[in-house]
Design a protein around this nucleic acid. Structure first.
Lengths: 216, 216
DNA sequence: TACTATAGTGTTATAAATACACTAAGCAAT
DNA sequence: ATTGCTTAGTGTATTTATAACACTATAGTA
C-alpha cells in the first residue's frame, strides 16, 4: 500500500526577504535538487507528531507554529513509489536564532528566497506555492505574524514582515491604527537602543496563540 | 504501515435544514453507529480519485464540488488498525435529485440534520464539525453556494440556503443588493410558476466554478 | 373584487478603510 | 551647541462598505 510522509514548509523573514528552508538531496534521481524537510510517518506516531519530529531532527526546532496545509496524493508524485504526503507549514521568528543541522543524509540545508527557488524535487515547488498562498491569506485574517517576530519587536518591524510577505507597501499610520485597535499587542515599556536615530517603542503580543482577527 | 482512506462529508440543504449524508455501520465495534461515506485508497488511484469513487459508489454522485478538508492522522482513531484518513467535503443541490444506493455493506444510508447527529463511529463527529466550520467560512467569501442550488433558482431560495447554514436571518434587501452587485448571478428571464402569489424571477449562476468573492 | 402570500425595491445612518504630511527624538558631525 | 540625518510617532478628512428599516407589486384563490 501507499506510504505516508510529512513535509514541512518552513518560512522566516530575514533581511527583508521571505525565506523557505530547503534541503539539498543526495539520492537519484534528485541529486542536486532541493526539497522541503520531511520524511516518513512512523507506525506508532501521529501524522502531526511526525511533522514535528522531522522538523526537530532536521532543524532543531520545537514548539513553533505548525499547521496542516494540504495532503498531496497523486499516484506519480514520488518516483520511489506510492507516497502520500501530508504537508504542513510553519513559521519561525528569525533564521539565525535556530541551529540548522546538516546531516549526512543530505548534501546541504539552507534558507532560500521564495522568489528564487532552486531546482525542486517531487511536487515541492507546488507545495511551497500553496503554503505561500496560505500564509498570505492567514496573515490578513489571523495573528500568525506573532510566529515570525521575536518576543519584543517594534511596530515598524512588524509592518515590514507584512510588507515582505504581501509584497506591497502599507500605510504606516493606518497599519499602526489597525494593529493597536485589535489589541493584539501591548507596549513593553522598553525602547530600542543603540540606533543612530530616535528609539522606537518595543511591543509584545498579548496572546501568543492562534486567533482569528481581521487585520488588513 | 499505515493505510490511507478517504472520507467524504456531503452536505445538502433540504426542507430548510442542513443535512449530512451518513451510513450506518454493520461491523463491530460500530454496529448501530454511523459514519461518513468513504473507504480505502487503492494503490493505483490518487487520493482525490478515491474520494470521488467512494462518493460515486455509495451515492451515485459524480462531478460535484469536492474539496479536501483535512487529514486525520492520530494513531488510535481507527480500532481496526492504523488508518490515516483524508477527509473531503462536498455539496449537492438537493437530496431528492440523487439516487442514494444502499449496499449490503451497510445497514442504511440516509441524510441527517447536522444539529442532530446519531451515534458516530471513529472521529467522524469531529470531522463533520470541521467540515461545517469550513462550509460556513467558505459561504462567506466564495461562491460555493452554487453547489447547493439547482440550475435555476430564486434569490429567496438562495437567501434561505445562507440562512440555514449560517443559522441566522439576513436582511432581504441587503442580501439581494450584495449578491447582485457581485455579478454572481443573472436573470434567466423565466419566473416561478404555480405559486399562489406573486411569481419570482429565476436566476442562474454566471460562473459555476469556485471563485473568491467577499459575500457577507 | 378583495384577501392572502411572497416578490421586489431605496434611502439614511453608521462603521470601516483609505489617503495623506508634519513633528519628535536620538546620534553624529562640525 | 548647532545642524543635519534618520527613523518614530501621530490625526483628520474622504470614501466606501455595512446595517437598519417599510412599503408597493403581482399572482392566485375565495
Amino acid at each position: 500500500m501507499a506510504a505516508i510522509a510529512t513535509d514541512v514548509v518552513m518560512f522566516t523573514v530575514h533581511n527583508q526577504q521571505l525565506k523557505v528552508l530547503l534541503i539539498e538531496m543526495k539520492k537519484k534521481p534528485f541529486v542536486g535538487y532541493w526539497a522541503t524537510p520531511g520524511g516518513m510517518v512512523n507506525p506508532e506516531e501521529s501524522v502531526d507528531a511526525s511533522a514535528q519530529r522531522h522538523l526537530s531532527n532536521k532543524a532543531g526546532i520545537k514548539d513553533i507554529y505548525l499547521e496542516q496545509l494540504y495532503t498531496f496524493g497523486d499516484v506519480d508524485r514520488d518516483p520511489f513509489g506510492r507516497v502520500v504526503s501530508v504537508a504542513y507549514f510553519s513559521l519561525i521568528p528569525d533564521a539565525d536564532k535556530f541551529q540548522i543541522k546538516t546531516t549526512h543524509d543530505y548534501a546541504d540545508i539552507s534558507w532560500h528566497n521564495v522568489d528564487h527557488l532552486p531546482k525542486m524535487a517531487y511536487d515541492h515547488r507546488h507545495i511551497i506555492k500553496m503554503a505561500l498562498d496560505r500564509l498570505r491569506a492567514k496573515l490578513e485574517y489571523t495573528n500568525v505574524v506573532y510566529s515570525l517576530l521575536p518576543t519584543d519587536f517594534t511596530l515598524a518591524e512588524m509592518q515590514q514582515v507584512y510588507e515582505v510577505i504581501l509584497g506591497k507597501n502599507l500605510d504606516k499610520r493606518n497599519f499602526r491604527k489597525k494593529i493597536l485597535s485589535l489589541n493584539m499587542v501591548e507596549k513593553t515599556g522598553k525602547k530600542t537602543e543603540g540606533t543612530a536615530h530616535r528609539p522606537a517603542d518595543l511591543y509584545k503580543f498579548t496572546k501568543k496563540s492562534p486567533q482569528i482577527v481581521q487585520i488588513l
